[in-house]
Design a protein around this nucleic acid. Structure first.
Length: 525
RNA sequence: GCCCCCAUCGUCUAGUGGACCAGGACUCAGGCCUUUCAAGCCUGCAACAGGGGUUCGAAUCCCCUUGGGGGCACCA
C-alpha cells in the first residue's frame, strides 16, 4: 500500500492553519424558483460552514413585494434539502439572530437608515419616479452615464421641512463621497478599487418603508455576525457601495467571495432561470427540473462542487465528507464556468451504478409510477421489478429513463405491436427464417424447467447451433417479440422476469404476425 | 457607451518561477469484450489567446492588445 506522499497529485493543497468557525448564509429572494447557480452558491456556503465547524444560515430576502412568487421559498427549501444542505438557523427553525425573514425586520432597517441620516451618510430624497426617468433619459441622450443627479442631496433644511410638511413620499439614499476612491477586498481577486465618482447615491430605504438589498444585506450580515459573504459575481459592481455602508456604520466588513457565474452549455451568457435552449436542445436550469429529470442529489452535489472548485488533480468522484474536509474558499476558480450537461449525466450514471439494487428500486419507484401510470405501492410489491432493476442499472443515466427500458413488462401482450417489419427479424435472417427461429424457441420456452435465464440461454444456444444460425441472430426475433423494441435489457433475464406464461403468449403473437405477413406476401406474388 | 472582473484541450479543471515537449475528467474517434443497448478495459485526437517585458529560466510575475463575462432600478 503506497502512502500518499507530498509528491502525490492528490495531496491536499497548501498547508493552511485551521479556520475559525465561520457563519455563512444563503439568502434567496422568493422571486422565482431555485436555479442551479443559487444551489451552487448554497453548496459552497454549506461546505465552508461544515469545513470550519461553523453555521449555515438560511435567510429570506423578501423586500420586493411586487416580484414575490408564491411557493418559491418552499421550492428553495426543498431544493436545499434535496441536496442535503441542512441549515442551522433559518425562518422555519429560528435561531439566536432572528427573525430570518427580512419583511419581518422593517423596524430594524428603518432605525439604521435613520441613523445614517443623522450621521450625515444618507439623506431623504423626494424625487418622483417620473423625474428620475426623465433625468436618465436626458443623460442617455447626451451620452452620459445614467444615474441619479443628487438633486435632493443639497436641499436646504427649510426646503426639506416644506416637502416633509406637504407629506410627500420619500426614499432614503446613501450619500456617496463625491471624491476619492473606495477599496474593498474580494477573497478570490484581492483588493479592488473604484473611483467614488463611478458610484451612485443608491436608494437604501424605499418609499414603502422596506429596505433595498444594499441596506438589508449590510445590516443583517452585521447583526447576524456573518463572517463570509458568498454571492454571485453580479454583486461585484455594488460591493464598493456596501463597503462604504460598513464604513459609515463603523462596522468591520465580512470576507467577500464573489462566485463566478455559471454559463450556459455554449459557454456564452449566464444561465438564465428559464429553460435554456442551445442547438435545439432544451436544458433544465431550475433545481426542480433537475429533480424531475432524475438526477441523484449525490451526483448533483459532486458535479456542482467541481464547477469552480476541484477536489484533487486526478479525482473527479468524491464523497460529501471528503469535500467537506478539503473544501477551501481560497481554491475557488474566479473565472466563469460553463455548465456541462454531458459530464453531469456521466457522473449521475456513476452514482446510479454505485447504488444497491434495493436502493435504486426505491428511488426509481416515483419515476416509474409517474411514467407507467401505476401506483407506487403496486410497483413496490411487484416481484418483476426486483428482477428488472439490476438489468437496467448500468444502462440508465437518469432515473427518468427507467420507464422506457422496462415499460413492456407492465403492459398486456396485446399492447406490444410489431409494426416495424424489421423488429422480428434476426440479423441476416429473412421472415421465413425468423419464423422458424421463433417456432423452435417457442417449443423450448413452453416446456423448459426451470424457467430461468441460464437454462433458457443454454437451450437457445444449443438450438441455434443445431440450426446453423449465429446466436445473436437467433436471439433477435425474441427480443422484438417480447419487448417490442430493438434495444432492451438482456434477453434471458428479461424473459425470466416476465414469466413463462407472458413470454409464451408474446412469442405466439409474434409467430402469428409473421405468418400473416408471409401469407399476404405470397398472395401478392 | 462607461465601470468592474476573468483568460490552460470543445467543456470542467491540475498547475502558485525549474520535477510540464503541460496531468486528470467529460465529450469525440478507434480497438477489446459482447445476445441488442449499456457498463467495463485499452489506445488516440485535443490547450498555456496574441505581443512585449522581468529572469539563467515563465503556463506561472508585470504591461499592452484581443476575447469572454458581469454590472450600470424605489429588483435582488
Amino acid at each position: 500500500m503506497t502512502q500518499e506522499t507530498e509528491a502525490s497529485p492528490n495531496r491536499p493543497r497548501k498547508d493552511r492553519s485551521p479556520e475559525p468557525p465561520a457563519r455563512v448564509r444563503f439568502a434567496p429572494s422568493p422571486t422565482g424558483y431555485l436555479h442551479l447557480g443559487g444551489l451552487r452558491t448554497a453548496l459552497f456556503d454549506w461546505l465552508w460552514a461544515r469545513h470550519t465547524g461553523g453555521q449555515f444560515i438560511l435567510r429570506v430576502e423578501d423586500t420586493d413585494r411586487r416580484r414575490y412568487v408564491p411557493g418559491s421559498l418552499e421550492d428553495a427549501m426543498q431544493g436545499l434539502k434535496w441536496l442535503g444542505l441542512e441549515w442551522d438557523e433559518g425562518p422555519d427553525i429560528g435561531g439566536p439572530y432572528g427573525p430570518y425573514v427580512q419583511s419581518q425586520r422593517r423596524a430594524i432597517y428603518q432605525e439604521y437608515a435613520e441613523k445614517l441620516i443623522q450621521l450625515g451618510y444618507a439623506y431623504r430624497c423626494y424625487c418622483t419616479p417620473e423625474r428620475l426617468e426623465q433625468v436618465r433619459e436626458e443623460q442617455r441622450r447626451r451620452g452620459e452615464k445614467p444615474g441619479y443627479d443628487r438633486h435632493c442631496r443639497t436641499l436646504s433644511p427649510e426646503e426639506r421641512a416644506r416637502l416633509e410638511a406637504e407629506g410627500l413620499p420619500s426614499v432614503v439614499r446613501f450619500a456617496v463621497p463625491l471624491e476619492g476612491s473606495t477599496t474593498f477586498h474580494d477573497l478570490l481577486r484581492g483588493p479592488i478599487t473604484v473611483q467614488n465618482r463611478e458610484l451612485q447615491d443608491m436608494v437604501l430605504l424605499k418609499s414603502d418603508g422596506l429596505p433595498t438589498y444594499h441596506l438589508a444585506v449590510v445590516v443583517d450580515d452585521h447583526l447576524m455576525k456573518i463572517t463570509h459573504v458568498l454571492r454571485g459575481q453580479e454583486w461585484l459592481a455594488t460591493a464598493p457601495l456596501h463597503q462604504l455602508i460598513y464604513q459609515a456604520f463603523g462596522w468591520e466588513p465580512p470576507v467577500f467571495v464573489h462566485l463566478p457565474v455559471i454559463l450556459d452549455p455554449s459557454g456564452k451568457g449566464k444561465m438564465s432561470k428559464r429553460k435554456k435552449v442551445v442547438d435545439g436542445k432544451e436544458y433544465p436550469t431550475l433545481v426542480r427540473d433537475f429533480i424531475q429529470a432524475g438526477y441523484l442529489p449525490e451526483a448533483m452535489f459532486n458535479y456542482l462542487a467541481t464547477l469552480g472548485w476541484s477536489y484533487a488533480a486526478e479525482q473527479e468522484i468524491f464523497t460529501r465528507e471528503e469535500a467537506i474536509q478539503r473544501f477551501d474558499l481560497r481554491d475557488i476558480n474566479p473565472s466563469p464556468a460553463a455548465m456541462n450537461y454531458e459530464k453531469l449525466e456521466w457522473m449521475n450514471g456513476v452514482y446510479i451504478r454505485e447504488l444497491s439494487p434495493q436502493e435504486l428500486k426505491e428511488r426509481l419507484i416515483p419515476y416509474l409510477s409517474r411514467d407507467l401510470g401505476i401506483d407506487e405501492e403496486t410497483l413496490r410489491q411487484d416481484p418483476r421489478l426486483d428482477k428488472l432493476v439490476p438489468l437496467i442499472q448500468e444502462r440508465i443515466k437518469r432515473l427518468s429513463e427507467a420507464g422506457q427500458w422496462i415499460d413492456w413488462a407492465f403492459v398486456e401482450a396485446e399492447a406490444i405491436t410489431y409494426t416495424d417489419p424489421k423488429l422480428l427479424l434476426g440479423r441476416k435472417l429473412d421472415a421465413a427464417q425468423s419464423l422458424a427461429v421463433l417456432q423452435a424457441g417457442l417449443a423450448i420456452l413452453e416446456r423448459i424447467e426451470p424457467f430461468e435465464h441460464q437454462a433458457i440461454q443454454d437451450a437457445f444456444r444449443a438450438k441455434a447451433e443445431e440450426m446453423g444460425i449465429k446466436a445473436g441472430s437467433f436471439f433477435g426475433p425474441f427480443r422484438g417479440a417480447i419487448t417490442g423494441k430493438k434495444v432492451s435489457p438482456p434477453l434471458f433475464e428479461s424473459m425470466e422476469a416476465l414469466g413463462r406464461e407472458e413470454v409464451v403468449k408474446r412469442v405466439r403473437r409474434a409467430i402469428a404476425f409473421l405468418e400473416e405477413q408471409l401469407q399476404a406476401a405470397s398472395e401478392q406474388a
